[in-house]
Every structure is written in C-alpha cells, then in structure tokens.
C-alpha cells in the first residue's frame, strides 16, 4: 500500500494532512478495475487529497463507545422461504448481453497468454 498520512500538528484534537499520491491512485485503480492517463492520475490525486483533508474534521468528534450505523432505520435480517420461482424471461436477459452464445455470456479468455 502506498498511503501516506502526516501529522502536522496536534493540540487537543488530532489534525492530519492527508497526502494522496499518484501511486495511491494507481493502486486504487487496480482495486477498482479502472485505468487512467497520467493527467487523470494527477487530477484524481489532487481531488481526493482535497476531499479527504476536508473530511479530517471528523477527527474532532469524540466517537468513543458510539455504535456505528450502517443504516438509518433499525433493520433486521429478512428471511424468506427457500422456494424456487421459475423465471421465463431468459431471452430478454440474453438480449442485453454484449456477446452471447447458446444462453451463455461470451467473454475474452480468462487466462492471459
């Protein structure tokens, strides 16, 4: 990983300056299945640096013992009966395939040469 965090000063709250390098963006691009030009790498590292430095204000908040919310509403697992419901629209689904062969999605070879 190529992430860098530098502490620039700390008094009663910890304020960090976050640096997002081009290397970081390159690594994230691999994780995201994206590829970028040099100019895009520059732009995105600059943008993300700005955004994460803005978000550093969250460090001011004392969240000790606070339970994280993954949702706004109290949600419980929804259980359904394990029952097969036949589906008849296969043609419609396959019609959206970029490349199709006998009801299967055709893709380039999975292993590189």
């Amino acid at each position: 990983m190529y992430f860098h965090i530098y502490a620039i000063h700390s008094s009663y709250v910890k304020i960090f300056f976050v640096m997002i390098t081009k290397e970081t963006i390159k690594h994230l691009a691999v994780l995201s299945r994206l590829e970028f030009t040099e100019k895009q790498l520059d732009n995105f590292s600059h943008d993300l640096e700005n955004i994460f430095n803005y978000a550093q204000m969250l460090n001011e908040v004392d969240t000790t013992g606070i339970i994280p919310s993954s949702h706004a509403m109290p949600l419980q697992n929804v259980f359904k009966e394990d029952r097969v419901i036949p589906y008849h629209n296969i043609e419609k689904i396959m019609a959206n395939a970029p490349l199709e062969e006998s009801h299967a999605f055709r893709v380039p070879k999975i292993l590189a040469d």
Binding site: R33, L34, N96, A97, P98, L99, V107, K109, I110, L111
Partner: peptide, 19 residues
C-alpha cells in the same frame, strides 16, 4: 461489460475487458 451495457472492443483478456 459481461452481462449488459457497454463492452470495450479493445481487450484481449477478461480482466482487461472489464477494466
């Protein structure tokens, strides 16, 4: 790019096609 929507024509492997 596998099941629907846009698929790049410029790829030789599955990962490259997705990327």
């Amino acid at each position: 790019g596998v099941r629907y929507g846009y698929r790049s024509e410029n790829a030789n492997s599955l990962i490259e096609m997705m990327t």
